[in-house]
Structures are given as structure tokens and as C-alpha cells.
Amino acid sequence: MSWRMTGFDGVPLTRGGWRFFLPDYDARYSEELRERLIDSAFAAIDGTLPTRVRRSRHAETWFEHFNQVGGPAAYFKVLDPIHGVNRARRIFKRGRAAHVASISAHLRAEAVGVPEILLLGAERRGGREIIVTARVEGFSIARHLRRAKLESRRGVLRALGAEVSRLHRAGYIHGDLSPFNIFVTGLEPPQFVFIDHERTRRTILSRLARPRMRNLVQLGHLELFGITNTDRMRVWSGYAAGFSRRRRRAERRRVAAMLRERIAQDRKGGVAARVAATLGPRREASGS
């Protein structure tokens, strides 16, 4: 599948100081849908699209349906301009939107779930960029775990660890592997989609323990959703099991050390008190 971004006529679409790109493989783009996507992109850029999802440190995200023109529900992520040293680095690197398109293509080739890209855009002078993706059909891992029954939750946690292991063994480090950036899209067997790839990299550093463990630490945010240390170990055990037998023991030692550190933090009371205040009394036995 080609991910070279072009317009219908094979050249970038320009409007209002922006250049827009459509994926050249997708024959489902009608002229009307294309125009609606670009109009909505400008509304998101101007801050006038009706549904604002959230404002993060570096971007603002909006949402809109395109049912009337045969298109999917879509998210519009407007990336702020890059400043300082990072802006100088752009001279030698491609833009963030182009990076997302490239890394998504590579991940899809590895059978890793990623959102479908509908439109990309870059401002010629201001430095802003926009990435439009189709809504993922499923629930974030955080939302799924709130609702899932005990056995289903255990299976999903183990499968999540195995999928992150597969991501790392393929050479990728996700830039923000939080529970909100992982969606559960199927249960038999569990299937996942990873979103937000502006900082995802294919790197030789994935062979090193420290960057991989940092990704797993990001998954420690599962504590916010009533996940026990036993549940957390299910994720990490699923992760270690994905490696060869020779490396598996070393990976298990690493994740066991992470768990001991997490338990020590919990015993200090800071995390436990915040979780208890947020969740209230637990009504579900943890089990093993």
C-alpha cells in the first residue's frame, strides 16, 4: 500500500497558506468529502469546529461526523508550531504529519493496528500542522478495563503485554504509551490499535532495556483505573513471554524489579491515597 500523500490530480492541494495531502490509495474519497474534510480542517485550525475534544501541551483536537457525504467520524489534531532548537532540526527532518504517515505505514506493514489517515496538512510559514484520522471503532484500554468482567480483563491485560512486546521486537518505541492511546477493538482474540504517533520511532534503541522499560512505565498509569499489582504483573509477564527463551528470564527480572519499585511507592501511601480518593472502595476481588 502506498502512503505517498497526493491530491486527486497527483499534486498537493493548496489553500489559504496551507498544503493538504490525501492518501493516494483511497478510492473512497469523493469530491464532496474532500472539500468537507478541508473545510473542517480550516474550522479546526481557526478553533470554530463545534466539537472540541481536548487541549494538550502541544496540540488541540477536534471531532466531526461525515455521515452525510459517505465519510467516517474523524478527529482533527492541530499541532502547534515548533520553537527553539527543535524548529532548527526541521531543516533536516520531515514534518510531524509526514512522519505520522510514514510510521503508520510501517506499523501497518508489521500488522500493528493504527488509525486510518484521512488528510494531512502543513502551514507553509507558521509551522502548524494538522492530522485527520478516522475514529477507531472500540474503546480505550482505560475505558474498557472499567467495564470489563474479571476474566475478560485478565485476558486483555496479558494480550496487551504481548502486543507491546511485539511492537518493541519489531524495532518501535511508542512516544506516549499511555492507556488513553491504546484502543481495544476486539476480544476473541484481543486486538489493539495504537494512536498518537508523532513521537513514535523505529530505532535501534528498541534493543536496549531502558527505552523499552520506559514505555512499560508509561503503562503504569493503569493504576488510575483500579488495576492491582497482580493485574500489572499480568501485563509485564505477557510482555516478557514474547521474547525468546534465552532473553525471557532477563526480561522477567526487569519487570519484577519494576513491580517491586511500584509496590514500594504504593506503600508510601501517596499513590494509594489518591487512587482510593478517586475510585472509592473496591468491590472486586483481585485474584491471581
Rank of each mutant, 00 (worst) to 15 (best):
M1A: 14
S2C: 02
S2T: 13
W3Q: 10
M5W: 09
G7L: 09
F20Q: 08
F21V: 06
D24V: 12
S30C: 07
E31G: 12
E35S: 13
R36L: 10
S40R: 15
S40W: 05
A41L: 11
F42W: 05
A43F: 07
D46C: 01
V53Y: 01
R55H: 06
S56L: 12
R57F: 11
H58W: 07
T61Y: 04
W62C: 01
F66V: 08
Q68V: 14
V69W: 07
A74Y: 08
A74S: 10
K77I: 04
L79T: 02
P81L: 08
V85F: 14
R89S: 02
I91P: 01
F92P: 03
G95E: 07
G95M: 05
H99R: 13
A101W: 05
S104E: 10
H106L: 15
A109K: 15
L120S: 02
G121C: 06
G121R: 00
R124E: 14
R135F: 11
V136D: 00
G138S: 09
G138T: 12
S140M: 02
S140R: 13
R143E: 14
L145G: 04
A148T: 10
K149R: 15
R153W: 08
V156N: 04
R169M: 12
A170W: 06
I173E: 00
I173M: 04
P179H: 10
P179F: 04
P179C: 14
T185P: 01
L187C: 12
P189E: 13
F192A: 04
I195L: 07
I195K: 07
H197L: 15
R199V: 01
T203N: 09
L205M: 12
R207S: 11
A209N: 08
R214D: 10
V217Y: 13
L219R: 05
L222R: 06
I227C: 13
A240N: 05
G242Q: 10
G242H: 07
G242D: 02
R246A: 15
R246G: 09
R247E: 15
A250N: 10
A257I: 04
K268T: 11
G270D: 08
V271N: 09
A277L: 14
R283F: 11
R283L: 12
S288W: 03
